[in-house]
Design a protein around this nucleic acid. Structure first.
Lengths: 152, 152
DNA sequence: ACAATTCCGAGTATTTTGCTCGGATATCGT
DNA sequence: ACGATATCCGAGCAAAATACTCGGAATTGT
């Protein structure tokens, strides 16, 4: 039940990108340096965010990335799902159907899994990237070195 | 971000155990047969539940397992944590402290992780084994074969 | 004694994670 | 045109985690 480094690095990276791409596009190299993440690995992560339509890119020299839409329209859920795939800890086929499963078969545990899934998704969907940006600016003075804290 | 088979099988197994250990202790073999789980693997899972104080055992011939305390005092959270370890998808050291991290360093993403962790734990802690038992009995007619549905 | 059990630790194949690497493609500045 | 700076893309690979199996010791009812 762990979130992989994709999700942890990726959220940090996207937040960094958001904070540093207002004047000009932010490059992989610059984000990687500030956040202390390997360039080649970060490349993969940003690639996923791009395919998910969260960031847009400018190729060639002086290129880089920026948000594809306003930060208030991007939720942490969007970001994590883009990076991790489904966030559902348990995926029964037909978990959402009324009867579900094989039809004649009914699982009781199914409702447990559904509640867990819903809880997680609801939580991450209600946190918007814009909120994190605001908080970041708020504590800007206190912030020190790159790499954030415990590598999360 | 997946719950392992430990958690999935284990919850099913414990529910089965609760439903079938009222007259006499339920053996690994019987639970395994009903739930269609490998005996040797199930042994490990029940072992964890026992060490966590959720089930008690009777050794020797005719032995088996039963709940160590009333089902209303056992939450799904207790069960899953016993089987999976911490359910927190992200574990920063010092996630709960006010300042946390290395002190001078402040992460914004930390609050995201904390909200996710809290959300999951709260969700699973408010579901009690007794509720699942009641639901199980409720749909007893509809229930068919062993093995539940999609192996979850 | 013997069969039925729980108890326990070690071993192992498969899958997932967390990367690295090489090279193709695009764009800017000179 | 050329080279420097970037994104883009897929393959490959070592380490870790998962999902088990297996052998055997200890315990207890008949």
């Amino acid at each position: 039940m762990k979130l992989s480094t994709k999700g942890r690095y990726g959220l940090r990276a996207l937040l960094d990108l958001a904070l540093n791409s207002e004047t000009e596009a932010a490059s992989i190299a610059s984000i990687a340096a500030r956040q202390n993440i390997s360039e080649s690995y970060l490349e993969q992560l940003i690639g996923k965010l791009r395919k998910a339509g969260l960031v847009s890119s400018v190729r060639g020299a002086g290129g880089g990335y920026m948000l594809a839409k306003p930060a208030k329209d991007i939720s942490v859920g969007d970001i994590l799902r883009a990076l991790e795939g489904s966030l559902d800890p348990v995926n029964c086929p037909g978990l959402d159907e009324e009867q579900g499963c094989t039809g004649s078969d009914v699982c009781v545990t199914k409702y447990v899994w559904k509640r867990i899934n819903d809880s997680i998704n609801q939580t991450v969907d209600e946190i918007k990237l814009s909120q994190l940006i605001e908080e970041s600016r708020g504590v800007k003075d206190a912030v020190s070195s790159p790499g954030s804290c415990c590598s999360n």
